[in-house]
Amino acid sequence: MNILDWPSELPLFDVVDLWLSGSTSSSGVGLDGREQILWRENRVWRGALSLPALRGSQPMRLRALAAQLRGRFGRFRIPICNRFTPRLQTTEADFLAKIGISATDIANGYSPWSDGTLFTDGTGWALPTSAEPVIAFAAPSGARIIHMENYIGRHIEVGAYFSINDFLYRVVENVDGAVSFDPPLREAVIAGSTVNVSAPMFVCRLVSDDGMRVPEHHVRITPSVGIEVVEAFDR
């Protein structure tokens, strides 16, 4: 079954509670009161999502999506809000202004040296761009560090999300584009692959077959709808 995209007619989620769910094991507490806990990398993304109140034909559209999913069988792609990290939201000029580039430099298309001087051709340093990061070096499945090129990649904030081929990751450290993250890479990536920071995407499926129920209200507004999802690996 194809991966279904979140319908454009529906609002985005107003609450996105995502966590990495795994399991540890233990043989129990010993005679000395100590406990040895064993851990292995078996974490998957789980999420509790909440939609704002639905209006007009939106409840019908969500019911249609639920029917297309056929319970837990289907997969769907949702956008993840990535706040508080450099990303393209509207225009290139707006992006440059948000990262601290002056209106004069934006109008000129370059920045001068700190003392105001320019190069011999009358221009200055090139301005950053809002281009999405690209992978500098290939990395195998299971890797926990990738090297991102471009301004956004070098400045992505700790705790921010990014996605590669709709697999979702969260930054735990960034040293000038050497980005550590969780969970580890779900699949190998090649140099030049695009990293989606401005609008990360996440492919998931419902936690239960009845996980997308939309109540029928004979009024103009349907109350908020909650949806529980789990990461889908098949592509």
Rank of each mutant, 00 (worst) to 15 (best):
A66C: 06
A66W: 04
A67N: 09
Q68H: 13
Q68S: 15
L69T: 07
L69W: 05
L69N: 07
R70N: 12
G71A: 10
G71W: 15
R72E: 14
F73Y: 14
G74E: 05
G74M: 05
R75N: 07
R75P: 01
R75G: 09
F76S: 02
F76A: 06
F76H: 04
R77H: 01
I78S: 04
I78F: 00
I78Q: 01
P79H: 06
P79G: 07
P79L: 05
I80C: 10
C81Y: 02
N82S: 08
N82C: 06
N82K: 02
N82Q: 05
R83N: 11
R83M: 06
R83F: 01
P86R: 12
R87N: 05
R87C: 06
L88V: 07
L88K: 11
L88M: 13
L88R: 09
Q89D: 13
T90E: 11
T90D: 12
T91N: 03
E92V: 05
E92G: 04
E92H: 14
E92N: 07
D94L: 06
D94V: 03
D94G: 10
D94P: 00
D94Q: 14
F95L: 01
F95E: 02
F95I: 00
L96S: 04
L96W: 08
L96V: 03
A97R: 15
K98L: 09
K98P: 00
K98Q: 15
I99N: 04
G100C: 10
I101L: 08
S102D: 09
S102F: 10
A103V: 12
A103W: 06
A103H: 13
A103Q: 15
A103P: 03
T104M: 05
T104W: 00
T104G: 05
T104A: 14
T104L: 09
T104N: 12
D105Y: 13
D105K: 09
I106M: 08
I106D: 03
I106W: 11
N108W: 10
N108P: 00
N108S: 12
N108L: 15
G109P: 09
Y110T: 03
Y110S: 02
S111I: 07
S111F: 01
S111T: 14
W113T: 12
S114M: 13
D115K: 01
D115R: 00
D115G: 10
D115P: 04
D115H: 02
G116N: 08
G116T: 07
T117F: 00
T117V: 07
L118C: 03
L118Q: 04
F119Y: 13
F119K: 00
T120F: 06
T120V: 12
D121L: 11
G122Y: 02
G122E: 10
G122M: 04
G122H: 01
G122L: 06
G122I: 10
G122D: 11
T123D: 07
T123C: 09
G124W: 11
W125S: 11
W125Y: 15
A126R: 14
L127C: 03
L127F: 10
P128M: 10
T129N: 04
T129E: 06
T129W: 11
S130K: 08
S130W: 14
